[in-house]
Amino acid sequence: MASSIYSLVYYSRNYIASDETTFAANVDQILAKSRLNNQRDEITGALLFNAGCFAQVLEGPLDTVEAAFERIQQDERHGDVSLLALNPIEHRSFPNWAMGFIGTSKIHAERFADIGSSSGFDPSRLTGDEINSLLRELAIEEEAA
């Protein structure tokens, strides 16, 4: 039987102004809004971010994943969205939806530590699947870009 759960993976360039307060305020906003929507839409996954990019895995029913992606596409806070994968999956890699800072910036790592822990972000989940671990590496590379 065909799987009814899909995984969508993308990464994009972060357009949020680089000043710290704006960046942090936007990150909070994204977390609050996405958490609400994704819970409603049965979407799990992970949103990785740093000053350079966003990288996200969305898992869930095709229609809600598509709707979420469409909302994401309309967001002005990022651009150059590369859709890396859209595939049916056997089972979810992530138990919930969470977001966390990923990168080498110490300041950001500290600043956004709360976001990660409060949303249940678990970087180790990113290493199980090939595309997910690729995404993680990509995000780190894009941090400085």
């Binding site: 598509e66 469409e70 596409q73 859709l83 859209l86």
Partner: peptide, 17 residues
Amino acid sequence: SRIVDLVGRTYVINGHT
């Protein structure tokens, strides 16, 4: 330019990119 950017972004529809 916003329209060119937005409309030109990838769509996902019924599993098609």
